[in-house]
Design a binder for these strands. Structure first.
Lengths: 131, 131
DNA sequence: CATAACAGGATAGATTTTATCCGATAGAGA
DNA sequence: TCTCTATCGGATAAAATCTATCCTGTTATG
């Protein structure tokens, strides 16, 4: 029922970048400031990059920068980028994963809970967190 | 972000027992009816038993029965019994687990989200699911 | 073209999840 | 009391996932 450490790192990373949305920041700086293992963080930033949450710049003076304004990035976006859609139970995403779904009375609980949690997380934008 | 298969089994198991709250049912029957590996289910039932959600009866004609009425057992109770308190991030349960909590702007998100999810889950009683 | 910094694949160690097995224990009935 | 049955609980193991590192390749700057 918990987010992984990877996702926690990813959120802290985006949080850090949201503090200076117009600068290009090196992995090394984020790593040091946020206490995240550098090589692991590099992998995480690749995922965030593919999800269009950050943009990467190669070469000398390269690094990362948010790809959108902090007010357009939600916690949900970051979770989706690192570990896929939020759900308490896989059957809430894909009914076929569970042989019981059609006659299961609990299935609707997971579906509606998922909707609620997702809604809350979608509304938490990084602009709210900037110091 | 997902419940474990163990918890899913536990919920299905309690759901099954809630269908006949006055009978003592053997592990073997629950196992077969709900498609849960018997030895694994036996372990799960031990946890549910320690959590006072079910009561066990040993010996010939032994088995399990709900320890309370279905209307007094929530999905949250079962999750707590198998995998501990619901939380997206451990810092929402124990601040000390995270060196950032005091100055972390995101911490309150986890705390309030946890409260919301827990509230929803506490309100889902097994009496609502009986056919 | 030398250097700095990210990209991406491979890999490995740690941890957690998902089971299974077996001797012990307790209760029902003969 | 004896025996059979079913749970109890500890030990263990296989599999999956998470966490992290390394190395080679690619790109951009000056």
């Amino acid at each position: 029922m918990q987010i992984t450490r990877e996702t926690d790192y990813a959120i802290r990373c985006v949080y850090y970048l949201a503090g200076k949305p117009d600068e290009v920041t090196m992995v090394d700086e984020i790593s040091k400031e946020m206490c995240i293992p550098k090589s692991f963080l590099a992998k995480i930033l690749q995922k965030l990059s593919r999800a269009k949450i950050v943009r990467s710049y190669r070469g000398v003076k390269g690094g990362f920068r948010l790809a959108k304004r902090p007010e357009n990035i939600s916690i949900d976006d970051v979770i989706k980028a690192t570990e896929g859609p939020v759900a308490m139970n896989i059957c809430a995403i894909d009914k076929k994963q569970c042989g019981f779904s059609d006659r299961c009375k609990i299935h609707p609980v997971w579906v509606s809970l998922r909707k609620d949690v997702e809604g809350i997380l979608k509304n938490k934008k990084f602009s709210q967190f900037i110091a």
